[in-house]
Design a protein around this nucleic acid. Structure first.
Length: 288
DNA sequence: ACGAGAACCTGTTTGC
DNA sequence: TGCAAACAGGTTCTCG
């Protein structure tokens, strides 16, 4: 229990964590009906629609979906609640008859017919909650410009190379751009580049052919392994407390400045640099 | 048009 | 010990 609480504080909502949360919510929400939706504080990064409660209350949740880092609650009438966790957002479930006491930053509370509560808690309010009709999702402003899902069929070496072609920006910055590939964040960009053996400082446009192939594969592998790790943690987590949170991962380079490179015997160890205001970790010898 | 950096906001960690 | 600065998983806007 204590371990889980401390894991909560090191939340990291990139694609694997969002997918893990989606799976956990699916177990508890699919097929259930929302009795009440309470907006405590609607002014997140983008103000949520004032009519959200009337759009949602009384509807059954058919299916939990995901696009990039957005979680989608598909309702029975074709409505979709769109949730993004930003940097600090959490979706916390509590059992019927055993509701957790209200916490600071509980901005939205869904109450199901059986009393189960789902709370959207987000201290920094970089998160988002919105509503759309299913048929309009592709054209929604959140999704209109997104690149391919890295775990989908449309993502591979040539597709990635095409996105990077002509870009002068460092590879690190290009991979954070959700139009290039949707779902990577600061941690998994560093991790993917490490496994691909590519320098985060390399000009993005120079990545094509076999390099692009390696990078696309590294991205896939890293994300799949992280989801697998989250999935196994999730089972324990749900059994233990019935809550959802985030999970600590074992990273190769992220946050490991000065430590020994796990891929080679170089002397300098893992380097930390700042690119467009954000930390990047890499091995200067192994990654070119 | 593009890319770098700031801004958004709060909480936690680090360093003097 | 206490306080201030630095830093944090994301996205979007502005400026050069």
């Amino acid at each position: 229990m204590l371990d889980q609480r401390s894991a909560d504080r090191t939340a990291m909502p990139e694609l694997p964590e969002v997918e893990t949360v989606r799976r956990g919510l699916a177990l508890r929400l699919e097929g259930r009906r929302v009795r009440r939706l309470r907006l405590n504080r609607p002014d997140l990064r983008i103000p949520m629609p004032a009519d959200l409660p009337e759009r949602v209350e009384g509807r059954r949740v058919d299916r939990l979906g995901r696009r990039a880092k957005y979680i989608l609650l598909h309702l029975e009438d074709g409505g979709v609640v769109i949730a993004h966790l930003g940097m600090s957002g959490r979706l916390v479930l509590s059992d019927a008859g055993n509701a957790a006491p209200p916490e600071p930053h509980d901005h939205v509370v869904f109450t199901l017919e059986d009393g189960t509560e789902l709370r959207f808690n987000d201290a920094r309010r970089f998160g988002v909650l919105d509503y759309a009709d299913e048929k309009d999702l592709e054209r929604h402003k959140f999704f209109m410009h997104l690149g391919p899902e890295p775990l989908g069929n449309a993502f591979n070496g040539p597709a990635l190379a095409a996105q990077l072609e002509g870009k002068a920006t460092p590879l690190k910055a290009a991979l954070l751009d959700q139009r290039v590939v949707a779902g990577l964040g600061n941690i998994y960009v560093s991790e993917s580049l490490f496994y691909a053996g590519l320098s985060p400082r390399r000009q993005a446009g120079t990545v094509a052919g076999p390099r692009a192939e390696r990078l696309a594969q590294a991205i896939r592998d890293v994300l799949e392994r992280a989801i697998a790790a989250g999935g196994s943690s999730l089972r324990d987590y749900v059994q233990a407390s019935g809550e959802l949170g985030y999970f600590q991962h074992q990273w190769a380079v992220y946050g490991k400045e000065g430590e020994r490179c796990p891929g080679c015997d170089c002397r300098q160890g893992i380097k930390r640099i700042v690119q467009s205001g954000r930390s990047t970790f890499y091995c200067g010898k192994r990654q070119r």
